[in-house]
C-alpha cells in the first residue's frame, strides 16, 4: 500500500485510470514453445508485463540426496530482471519477495502436477519477469502453467492466476502497477479451473467478508478469459508443429 500523498485519481466516471472497467483484464497474449532448449516454455504479454517462463524436466533429481523415490520434486524460481521496472535499476538475484513468491507458486503447481508419475525426478520451473507493470506473479504463474503443459508434464489442470484489488469501495480485477501502489487491497489468486479450487491466496490491505466474496466471483469470471488464452496458445503451438 503506497503512501496516501499525491494519490492519483484511480477511478474517473466509473472507469479506471487506463479506461478499463472494474472487471476488465488488460490485453493478454501468450505464445507457447519459445525457448528452444527448454522442455516447455511460454512467452506472455499482459498489459505492459512481459514474462518468459520455461520448464526443464522431468529429469533425474540433482543433487541426488534431494531425490524422493515416491514422487517428483518441483523447483520454482520467480525473478525480476534489473531493467524490468520503469523507475530505478533493480537488484539482480533472489530477494525476500521473490523467495516468497517462488515458494507459494511452487506449492500451487505441486497441487496439479501428477508428482507420483515421476518418482525420483525433478521439474524445474523458471519465471523471468522481463518487464513489470503490476501483477507480475499472476503473469509469471499463468505463463509457467502454459510452459508446463507445453513440456508435456502430466497435470490435473492448467491453472491460471490473477490479482483482485480494492480501490475505495470498488473491487477491481487485474491490478496494474499504479493501482497497486495506491490501492486499498491487493489479492493475488491462483485457481484450478476444473473445480475452482484455490491453490494460491495472498492478500494485504483491507477487505470485508462481502468484498472478499465479490472479489472471488470476479476472479472466476476473469479466469474464463485467461484460461481461454492459455488454451489458444497451446492449440496454436501444436497446430503449427503439425504443419
Amino acid at each position: 500500500m503506497g503512501s496516501s500523498l499525491n494519490k492519483p485519481e484511480l477511478i474517473v466516471n466509473g472507469k479506471r485510470h487506463d479506461g478499463r472497467g472494474f472487471d476488465q483484464l488488460r490485453p493478454l497474449r501468450i505464445e507457447a514453445g519459445v525457448v528452444k532448449n527448454a522442455d516447455g516454455s511460454a512467452y506472455l504479454e499482459w498489459g505492459d508485463n512481459k514474462v518468459l517462463a520455461a520448464v526443464y524436466g522431468p529429469r533425474e533429481a540433482m543433487p541426488k540426496h534431494i531425490a524422493d523415490p515416491s514422487k517428483c520434486i518441483v523447483k520454482c524460481r520467480y525473478s525480476m530482471a534489473p531493467f524490468s521496472g520503469i523507475d530505478d535499476h533493480g537488484r539482480s538475484g533472489p530477494n525476500r519477495r521473490s523467495t516468497e513468491i517462488s515458494k507459494v507458486a511452487r506449492e500451487a503447481f505441486e497441487n496439479v502436477i501428477l508428482l507420483n508419475d515421476y518418482p525420483g525426478g525433478m521439474i524445474e520451473i523458471f519465471m523471468e519477469i522481463l518487464q513489470s507493470d503490476g501483477g507480475t506473479r499472476a503473469a509469471g504463474i499463468t505463463a509457467a502453467s502454459v510452459a508446463l503443459a507445453n513440456a508435456g508434464i502430466r497435470m490435473k489442470d492448467i491453472v491460471y492466476a490473477v490479482s483482485a484489488g480494492r480501490i475505495d469501495k470498488h473491487i477491481v480485477i487485474d491490478v496494474d502497477m499504479l493501482e497497486d501502489n495506491y490501492s486499498d487491497a491487493d489479492m493475488p489468486v491462483v485457481v484450478a479451473p476444473r473445480n475452482n479450487d484455490v491453490l494460491l491466496l495472498q492478500m494485504d490491505g483491507g477487505l470485508s467478508t462481502e468484498q472478499f466474496s465479490e472479489a472471488m466471483r470476479m476472479v472466476l469470471e476473469a479466469g474464463k478469459r485467461i484460461s481461454a488464452e492459455q488454451k489458444r496458445a497451446l492449440e496454436d503451438y501444436y497446430k503449427m508443429a503439425k504443419e
Binding site: V104, R106, E107, A108, E110, N111, M187, A192, N196, D197, V198, L199, L200, L201, Q202, M203, D204, G205, G206, L207, S208, T209, F212, S213, M216, L220
Partner: peptide, 28 residues
C-alpha cells in the same frame, strides 16, 4: 476485528472459496 488485513495460503493443497469464507468468518 473489522476487516481482513492479510491472508496467506501455504502448502500444496487446495481450499474452496466456501471454505475460505468460512475460515474468514471464524477468524473475525
Amino acid at each position: 476485528g473489522e476487516s481482513i488485513r492479510a491472508m496467506q495460503k501455504g502448502l500444496s493443497g487446495a481450499v474452496t472459496i466456501g471454505e475460505a469464507e468460512q475460515m474468514i468468518g471464524e477468524s473475525l
